[in-house]
Nucleic acid binder design. Structure first.
Lengths: 254, 254
DNA sequence: AAGCGGGTTACGATAGGCGTAACTTGAAAT
DNA sequence: ATTTCAAGTTACGCCTATCGTAACCCGCTT
């Protein structure tokens, strides 16, 4: 029937679906054909063809029990990507430096599709530490990742804040008005500290990475267990992160 | 016209081309539309549609000057892959261990499409070291990667050896007969040492990773500058690599 | 031995995707 | 300034690559 959707003009549907398939396999290791088809609401033959195509190219691998995982070509893509995405390439050594000094886990997060997305990380060598994972998503409205929201145009900001705010812990802010007020405070002070908003017992500190025009392109973050984190540590983290943030900005060309 | 090619049954062509596009961008950062189209022998509109689709999903990113690079989704894919591909996941800490002990660069290589392909590596922290790169390909017929050939069925082996052997340095073996004899020797001794066959001034030692049935699934490798590598070092590397190889085999379930 | 569900194959219909050709833009050449 | 050229993009009608249906083939359970 109709064909011109609002904004989906000029994309190749089969490729689009195939990306869905690929990401589905990435998210669910050892997934089966039928499962993928169900997840995506597509027919089995279609998905089978896609998986076969991906398999030929080494992007996925079919085990002898018929389950699918990512393949070696995906690894190659990923390593190539991490040298090509400026932000990641530049941030990585800086994240490591901060992580070493703070002796806690650091992350680089961007806004992606209405959530915060971890695209680089460093974890220190110690038994107990915050676990970070590239690709993991978190709400923008909870924890110190709020800094990503704080610098948006008020209008866009409101669009990004859902009607009901997901409650992750008892400290999560769930009132829109309060959240907006908090964002205002963050913008004025230039950082955000969250105590147990995302996970109990965790302290998280974030500082925005700003472009020359004042727009946010990412956030750098330190996450630490609350029991070993004093006020003075938090202050140290903030200083470290601010340095890191300006270094990244600078190296990106500003 | 005709449609049934020899073995290309049942794959989705547009997806296949799109993978070509993606890999092309991976290999050539900051490539332009026209270049991709030329490389692949496709029309510009087709490639444009593909790139747009990939861009929407964050697999590639278009710079404001119109060049394309891999995007953040590729990073996510890659990190997911390295936890899903058993061989890589298992080999990584072992490569690191060997690399630390040898204080030289280590690699894990597999046969892919008639070449050897680096799918994992470790580089020690020292100023002068062999540079390894995930995704880099080398001929199977030169250097210590020959171990990958040595254990194949003689028939398959011969198929894999091209008519004329690429000469990389003056020490590269270029006679098929000599190569086959060398492979025989490698199989008997269980490792391969190459002096300057791939690059002058480099020593490379490889040991095969064998499956329960004696088939080769990968090779572990130490690469080092010749000037600081004595015979005794080579012997040490061989021992380290053999240990590593059996550890990997064991952890894979044999 | 019938039933079930995952995986696979066959095939004809169709709309998704293709290339041609035309247009835009911006930069280089004259 | 004016022309030329090439890269990038859009439009559009044709056609074939791709789709879903339906049927089939396991192996496993009941």
């Amino acid at each position: 029937m109709d064909k011109r959707q609002s904004s989906k003009s000029d994309i190749v549907q089969s490729v689009d679906v195939c990306i869905d398939v690929l990401l589905n396999v990435a998210k669910n290791p050892d997934i089966r054909l039928t499962e993928v088809a169900q997840n995506l609401g597509e027919t089995k033959p279609r998905i089978l063809r896609m998986l076969r195509t991906l398999e030929r190219r080494g992007l996925v691998r079919k085990s002898d029990t018929g389950t699918y995982r990512l393949g070696t070509t995906a690894i190659i893509l990923g390593t190539a990507a991490s040298t090509q995405v400026d932000l990641v390439r530049i941030a990585n050594p800086i994240l490591e430096e901060v992580g070493q000094k703070a002796n806690e886990t650091t992350q680089l997060r961007i806004i992606d599709n209405g959530e915060s997305l971890c695209i680089a990380k460093f974890e220190p060598m110690r038994d107990l530490r915050v676990q970070a994972m590239i690709g993991r998503r978190r709400p923008l409205t909870a924890g110190s990742y709020k800094v990503l929201l704080a610098y948006l145009h008020p209008q866009v900001q409101l669009q990004m804040i859902p009607e009901t705010l997901p409650r992750l812990t008892k400290r999560t802010i769930t009132d829109r008005g309060k959240l907006v007020a908090e964002l205002d405070k963050i913008r004025r002070q230039g950082f955000c500290v969250s105590y147990g908003e995302v996970s109990d017992q965790l302290v998280s500190v974030s500082v925005p990475v700003l472009a020359f025009d004042g727009s946010v392109i990412a956030a750098v973050n330190v996450g630490a267990p609350a029991f070993r984190t004093q006020k003075s540590d938090v202050d140290r983290f903030i200083v470290l992160l601010k340095e890191a943030s300006s270094k990244i900005s600078a190296r990106l060309g500003w």
